[in-house]
Amino acid sequence: MDIVRDILDKQLCDREEIFMGRVDGLVLEVSKDGPPRVDHFELGFAVLARRIHPRVERWLQAIRKRWSVRKNARQIVPWSAVLEITPQHIKLDLAALETPAFDWERWLRKHVIRKIPGSGAE
């Protein structure tokens, strides 16, 4: 497997196959004995911003401090959570709704969408 071609930027989903973001960053662990191995994935706008330029990430973090509903701009998913890798997605042993990937989604549902009639929320 080619980690940049087959893992980076790939769709992530939870046990129920609910989409929960993409592999925005990959972190390797380099040990003295043995080859480097993938330790965890990183998710979040901050990770994407850093891929553009470190300065963009700094701007984003500054804005985030004032506005964001998220506790942390970077969500970490350990490699051990991976259930299976298919051509379509990477399935994780998580429940999307409870992860930080859904912070914004939860906030929007609660504060905006549910207040509009016909949203399908009970």
């Binding site: 609910i18 973001g21 993409r22 999307a96 399908g120 929320a121």
Partner: peptide, 23 residues
Amino acid sequence: FAQTFGWNWGEDLEPAEDARFCL
């Protein structure tokens, strides 16, 4: 947007199931 950031998407879902898509 949904596909770029990997959100849940689909016009058949209720808005409460894909809030960001609706946003």
